[in-house]
Amino acid sequence: MTGVLEREMFSEAEAARLLRVRQSTLHYWLEGSQRSSKSYKPILRDKPRGTRTVTWAEFVEAGYLRQYRQTHNVPMKELRRFIELLREEFGVPYPLADRRPFVSGRNLVYDAQTAAGLGVDYWMVAVAGDQLLLTTPADSFIRRVGWSGDVAVSYSPDANLESPVRIQPDVRFGKPSIKGVSTEVIAEQHDAGEDADAIAEMYALDASDVSWALAYEFSVRATAKAA
């Protein structure tokens, strides 16, 4: 199952589109940068790979960073160190695409975020009474992800977490879909003049599935126009 994490899934441009982040931002997270005489290490990779392809694990972990990009200017130096510590503590190259830090390993996460000097606004877990609870961005992220054991196997790209739209590495080559039907194909049928009931019958979907697919695709188009 862990082999799926290393699978190359998307071009950098496509991953950025699906995550709704700037490609330059995603590239920096993956490859770091060189500015004047100073080099900045990647966030999601242990070292630059000189590639514009994105693995499934990198895509999922970028989804985690995206949660913080919604409201915060993520501090790269401390965040980089935090993820490095998580790699060491959990012994995996992709700790944010692993369920344990969010569920059973919160004590290790707490130690890592304090050791990295990560500001409280960027913590994954926080103390509440005598419990360690997920912060709002971390909780929102983990609810976007479907798990098989401790491995991330699906991701919800829709801002509405009630949406059934999913990205899965083994379904439609990672394209957003509902019940195995690409949302892009559903939108194309709608653009061609088919009504929702006809589309639902065509692909053996419920009418609500079609509505969710169209809502997602229309929001993607709106985001692209606004960029």
Rank of each mutant, 00 (worst) to 15 (best):
M1W: 06
V4L: 14
V4A: 09
A13Y: 10
A13P: 00
A16C: 02
R20D: 11
R22E: 14
R22Q: 12
Q23T: 03
L26R: 00
H27W: 01
Y28P: 00
W29E: 00
K38S: 14
K41F: 09
K41G: 09
I43D: 01
L44E: 04
R45Y: 02
K47P: 06
T53D: 14
T53A: 13
V54M: 08
T55K: 03
A57G: 08
A57V: 08
F59T: 04
F59I: 09
V60Q: 07
V60S: 06
Y64L: 13
L65R: 00
Q67L: 10
Q70P: 02
H72N: 08
P75K: 06
E78V: 00
R80V: 02
R81P: 03
R81T: 13
E88D: 13
F90I: 04
F90S: 07
G91H: 06
G91W: 03
G91M: 06
P95S: 07
A97H: 05
A97C: 09
A97I: 06
A97S: 13
D98V: 00
V103N: 03
V103R: 04
N107E: 13
L108F: 07
Y110M: 12
A112K: 03
Q113K: 06
T114D: 06
V120E: 14
M124P: 01
L133F: 04
T135S: 07
P137R: 09
R143F: 03
R144E: 06
V145H: 08
W147Y: 03
S148W: 13
D150T: 14
A152H: 10
V153H: 09
Y155E: 09
S156N: 15
D158W: 09
A159D: 14
S163E: 08
S163T: 04
P164K: 06
R166M: 09
R166L: 15
I167P: 01
I167Y: 03
K175G: 02
P176R: 06
P176V: 05
V181T: 11
V181N: 04
V181S: 03
Q189Y: 15
Q189N: 12
H190T: 07
A192Y: 12
A196V: 15
A198I: 13
A198R: 15
E201R: 14
M202E: 15
M202T: 15
Y203V: 05
L205G: 06
S208R: 15
S208Y: 15
D209I: 11
V210H: 07
S211A: 14
S211M: 11
L214P: 08
F218D: 08
R221T: 09
A224Q: 14
K225T: 10
A227M: 12
